[in-house]
Design a protein around this nucleic acid. Structure first.
Length: 127
DNA sequence: AGCATGACGTCGA
DNA sequence: GTCGACGCCATGC
């Protein structure tokens, strides 16, 4: 039958790459953190780490994605130094830290305490 | 179509 | 050991 509405399987702003990033981030268990580079590396090491952050930013802002799939715990993603570089993109500058601390992750001076200890590498945990 | 930007990471000087 | 430049992928003008 003809389809009166044509729901695009993959919106232009959410391509396979973004979906991949979202999926991996969702796998990060509470109380653990990962890095942009780890995700990029897990996805093939060919993807730029910037694109990962870009995907998270888009995911957080795009309510459609949040409704379609589970919310992306972007607060569990920090840079390779454990710094909360993405906190400025949250509703409030402290929202990211608040969420992390709510999960038992201590944040001090915008840096995850015991980052190496809480580090969750998808390439290791998943593969 | 080309240039500039971005929640990064790695290399070279 | 610190600083600067390039690369990566995707988006916006």
């Amino acid at each position: 039958m003809k389809k009166p509405l044509a729901p695009p399987p993959t919106p232009p702003t959410e391509r396979n790459y973004f979906a991949d990033v979202h999926e991996v981030v969702r796998l990060v268990p509470p109380g653990r953190v990962t890095s942009y580079g780890a995700i990029a590396h897990y996805l093939g090491a060919k993807h730029g780490s910037r694109a990962v952050g870009y995907a998270l930013m888009a995911a957080n802002l795009d309510a459609a994605t949040l409704q379609r799939d589970a919310p992306v715990p972007a607060h569990r993603v920090v840079n390779r130094l454990g710094q909360l570089t993405g906190r400025h993109h949250f509703p409030t500058p402290t929202a990211m830290q608040e969420r992390l601390e709510a999960e038992g992750v201590r944040v001090e001076d915008d840096v995850v305490v015991e980052f190496k200890k809480l580090y969750w590498d998808p390439a290791v945990e998943l593969g």
